[in-house]
């Protein structure tokens, strides 16, 4: 895999990764190197193994076989503190309906030992247009607002690696635009972004490397600079359908 970074050691290295759920093989001998500051977008049809790959990389799920290294250290040898580097936006919001937006951010901020948590939470809520609702219970929020509070929660501790699983789901165009700006800001701060999405335009816009998965395998891995963006939709259809078939 190509790298846009000068560092030689991958930040994350996945080798011959297999993940099996019962009779279903979700990942089939996947190899992937991710470097600091890289922005990877993973595309693929439903059931291709994108979310599984994201869960493996973010240590939410364990590999059945193969190895996962962070800075050349096997993940099993890392202590709990290493998770401080991760910010995860999942299908689920990871927030408590019985707490307000600010209370949720303060709670997760405390767990991540964030200093000036209230200040950081206010800043994020302002960026995501939720500040006026900061004292409202999260259970009163709409789907789009839940997604925005979920983004704020994932970024409250300024993680080095941001994992996003369909982050644009439920967001209107204005909120989508704000999220893209927020993510580009993170990239300019040399943060690493790994995103799963079905939105080809937005996903391609943020990426410097594009992966396409199908049936548990990475069937396409290319730098964005090497892609003819006008033809990407066709490339996606050909790769995802034909190579996976």
């Amino acid at each position: 895999m190509g790298s846009s970074n000068t560092e030689n050691t991958p930040l994350i290295s996945l080798k011959q990764a297999m993940k099996i759920y019962g009779h279903l093989t979700a990942l089939k001998k996947v190899d992937l190197d991710i470097f600091r500051g890289q922005s990877i977008t993973i595309f693929g049809p439903n059931g291709a193994g994108k979310s599984t790959l994201l869960k493996i990389l973010s240590m939410q799920s364990r590999l059945t076989s193969g190895s996962l290294l962070y800075n050349n250290i096997p993940y099993k040898k890392l202590n709990d503190d290493f998770r401080y580097n991760f910010g995860v936006i999942s299908h689920q919001p990871f927030v408590y309906g019985g707490l307000s937006a600010m209370e949720n951010l303060k709670f997760y901020g405390s767990l991540y030992n964030v200093s000036n948590v209230e200040e950081k939470a206010s800043e994020l809520l302002k960026q995501l247009d939720l500040y006026k609702r900061k004292d409202d219970l999260v259970r009163t929020f709409s789907r789009g607002m839940l997604q925005r509070i979920s983004i704020a929660r994932a970024l409250i501790h300024s993680p080095e690696i941001i994992f996003l699983d369909e982050p644009y789901t439920g967001l209107d165009s204005l909120a989508s635009n704000k999220l893209s700006i927020l993510l580009k800001e993170q990239l300019s701060n040399n943060k690493t972004i790994i995103m799963v999405t079905h939105d080809l335009i937005t996903g391609l816009d943020l990426a410097d490397t594009v992966l396409i998965m199908n049936k548990g395998k990475i069937v396409y891995n290319c730098k964005k600079s090497d892609i003819e963006q006008e033809n990407f939709h066709n490339i996606y259809l050909e790769t995802a359908v034909e190579k996976g078939a």
């Binding site: 998770r83 995860v88 299908h91 689920q92 990871f94 408590y96 767990l111």
Partner: peptide, 17 residues
């Protein structure tokens, strides 16, 4: 309350014992 919204998973992701 931990299961709703996936909070238990979020707690497991936190850098704490």
């Amino acid at each position: 309350s931990e299961l709703e919204g996936g909070n238990f998973e979020a707690l497991m992701l936190a850098p704490v014992d």
